[in-house]
């Protein structure tokens, strides 16, 4: 029987899933846990949000962009 992972372990797996390819067993354990755990689902969505937020930094400076376009 596959051992159940705790939220602590799952949160680390969610994070590592953003940095490396998880193994089959890891993905399976992660998927199972996320199905039954609302907290970790929320965490997983927060991580995805964090990644897209960082892609937007630094915030676009409208003035600089307007300046660049007007030349």
């Amino acid at each position: 029987m596959m051992s159940l992972r705790s939220c602590r372990e799952v949160s680390a797996l969610v994070s590592q899933g953003l940095d490396r390819e998880l193994g089959f067993g890891e993905r399976l354990a992660l998927g199972l846990h996320l199905q039954i755990c609302k907290g970790c689902r929320g965490f997983s969505r927060q991580m995805a949000f964090l990644r897209s937020a960082l892609e937007r930094l630094p915030e676009d400076d409208p003035q600089a962009r307007a300046g660049a376009q007007s030349t």
């Binding site: 705790s6 939220c7 602590r8 372990e9 609302k38 907290g39 970790c40 929320g42 969505r45 927060q46």
Partner: peptide, 14 residues
């Protein structure tokens, strides 16, 4: 996390 590995504060829905 608590000793049993559960969230101390469950992540909120954003």
């Amino acid at each position: 996390f608590k000793v049993d590995g559960h969230w101390q504060d469950v992540p909120a829905d954003w």
